[in-house]
Computed example of a mutant assay.
Amino acid sequence: MILVTGGTGLVGAHLLYRLASEDREIRAIYRTHSSLHKVLEVFTYYTTTEKAEHLFKKIEWLEADIIDIPQLFLVFPKITEVYHCAALVSFSPRDYRKLRKVNIEGTANVVNLCIDFKVKKLCFVSSIATLGKPISDKKMITEQLNWNPETNHSDYAITKYGAEMEVWRASQEGIKTLIVNPGIIIGPGFWNKASGQLFTRIHHGLNYHFPKVTGFVGVNDVIDAMLKLMNSDNFNDRYILVSENSSFKDVMKYTANSLEKPEPKKDLQKWMIATGWIFQKIGSIFGFKRSITKSDINGLFATSYYDNSKIKSAINFNFTPIEDVIEETGHLFLKDNAK
């Protein structure tokens, strides 16, 4: 039986559809009953409402939180494979304790139970934020670049790195592990969270873009890679999942085109962020709440290029062009918002 944590999130919901479609025996956990409707909505992107409901009912749903050990203990009997997608994403300094609790302690709990119940294989969804940085911005970032604790990192990155350390501990205890490091994940269904907010803001009118270059990837490419890796002989390794390295200027242009809206034309300046302008305009896209750090400001203007050759070679994998991913996501956004 397969366990999916974070099944009510972007990656987890789309992953559950694929697993249910393959007629796999699945168990998934949720924290609040109200979050389950979003999963069913994601299923309808791929099939009829009737078929979506049928697939949804095939999943054994259990109420549990990864930071609640007694609850989590009841989830693991009969589990042979785990997709650990659950995480807290926030870039607010006020959420540091919560980030540590969920991302590090929660992952430690999952790892401990994988060991106790002798799970055969564990796939963990991490982030490119945990990768080391090259000396030059023009150098490609690979899986071999080690984390440097002396450089500036967001609290989110620090806690995801801590989670990775827990997963590597599982590999030392005999669990076959895989870590995937996706870039910014683009996909439909969660329009008020993470990259989904980009579609919402541009739909409502957004005039500014900024020059940050980073890795982007479609949610279904992330899932395809995870499934292929779990079904392969690969283990105790990590893989960057990035379709393309793109500027936010280009990504915002593609998004605007997909929504048939004017593309953002004006350059975002650092003074706008430093004076609090970003909070009124686009701050929530990146999780900024009441405060913003100097590293946050610099990060919006950073350039990072990620090398995806390892995953391509390991499982003969091909990525979907990010413009195509955005076009399809935008189409579903318009469909959802026409209801």
Rank of each mutant, 00 (worst) to 15 (best):
K270C: 10
D23M: 10
L40Q: 04
M230G: 05
D237K: 13
Q172P: 12
H153P: 04
K228V: 10
T293A: 08
F319C: 08
S243H: 06
A108V: 10
Y83D: 08
I273F: 09
S154Y: 03
F317E: 07
K193M: 13
R100H: 13
M140I: 12
V89T: 06
V11W: 01
L10A: 00
K253H: 13
C85H: 00
I69M: 12
L198Q: 15
F56G: 04
A170T: 11
A108N: 12
P188M: 00
H14L: 04
T48A: 08
F333I: 07
K139N: 15
T159I: 08
P134C: 05
E50R: 11
S136Y: 15
L131S: 11
R97F: 12
I282R: 05
I2S: 05
T177M: 06
F199C: 13
P134Y: 02
I135R: 15
H37W: 02
H37A: 11
L332P: 05
L268R: 00
F216A: 08
L19K: 00
D116A: 15
G189E: 07
P264V: 08
K261E: 07
W277M: 12
G183I: 00
H209F: 13
S35G: 09
K118D: 11
K101V: 02
I67L: 03
V325Q: 07
E150G: 14
Q144N: 15
V102H: 09
L3K: 01
S21M: 08
A163Q: 11
F248L: 01
T49K: 15
G106W: 06
K121V: 07
S309T: 14
K339Q: 11
H153A: 06
N234V: 14
S34I: 11
N146F: 13
N337T: 01
L131K: 11
Y83A: 08
I175Y: 11
V89W: 05
V251R: 09
K51R: 14
Q172K: 15
S304Y: 07
F317K: 05
A87L: 01
G330E: 01
S313L: 08
A274K: 15
F190P: 13
G276H: 03
L16E: 06
M1N: 09
Y46R: 04
T32C: 09
